[in-house]
Amino acid sequence: MKRNRMKVDIASILVLLFAAGAQVTPAQESHIGGITGEATRGRHLYRRYCVGCHGPLGDGRGENAPWVDPKPRDFVTGTFKCRSTPSGELPTDEDLFKSVTRGLVNSNMPPWLPLTEQQRADLVAYVKTFSSRFREEKPSAPVEVPSEPAADQQSIQRGSELYQKMNCWSCHGKEGHGDGPSAQTLVDNRGYPIPPFDFSAGTRFKCGESNQDLYRILMTGLDGTPMPSSSSALTPAQTWDLVHYLRALQINAKYSKASSPPRTGGSVALNKQLVRRPEHADLF
């Protein structure tokens, strides 16, 4: 009699535990090359590595957030800086994977290389559960990056004229030092001050370091920040001219050699390129 009751109890505990797990993590997947990330697995990793800054609700209000600048990303709005998709669109799974892998330079977000690719893919899947947009919308096709023309004197000169015409100097300054007349007024979408990129500083960009990355940044903009998308304003040739001019402003850049070979396809293969110099390696 008693034994029977115990059996029932054990069964009900198992059912309840299963229900608890299922309730907490909505199903969500990520697809990175051949890897499929699972939100249920990503949740455990998130609770261990990400929750301190991004918070248990994914709203960027973790317990470290008050001491972090720039502020941790709020995943609930589904707005991301580093995308391959047009402004206002969701990022692709691969875009998120790249951000986790690369980290965001000049922020507290380190490159998460100590985690395996599978683990990073699982994290991407879990991060997508915080915003309903990932269930309602699909990101549109990534912006195409056509092959790069020669970076000659004429291209740089045309780029310099575009830098004027597009009012890039208003924020980034006449010589790209990040000291334009509007630089001091800039805030992000949560109202926190955000400085424009200083091209003379010699650091990488937030969303990569190659010429192709810079092309993509100009085309997509950095959503959630004052940096707009130029996709409807510039032709591909003009965008390359602007890339060449911006490179010319980077007098202290130490990685121009590494950035010259164009990046080709291959999602997971990008790791090697991304990881050359983890600037937060000491964190691990």
């Binding site: 004052p226 130029s230 304003a233």
Partner: peptide
């Protein structure tokens, strides 16, 4: 709503 940011030259 979706947040976007687009530059519009003259």
């Amino acid at each position: 709503n979706r947040e976007w940011n687009i530059i519009q030259p003259p």
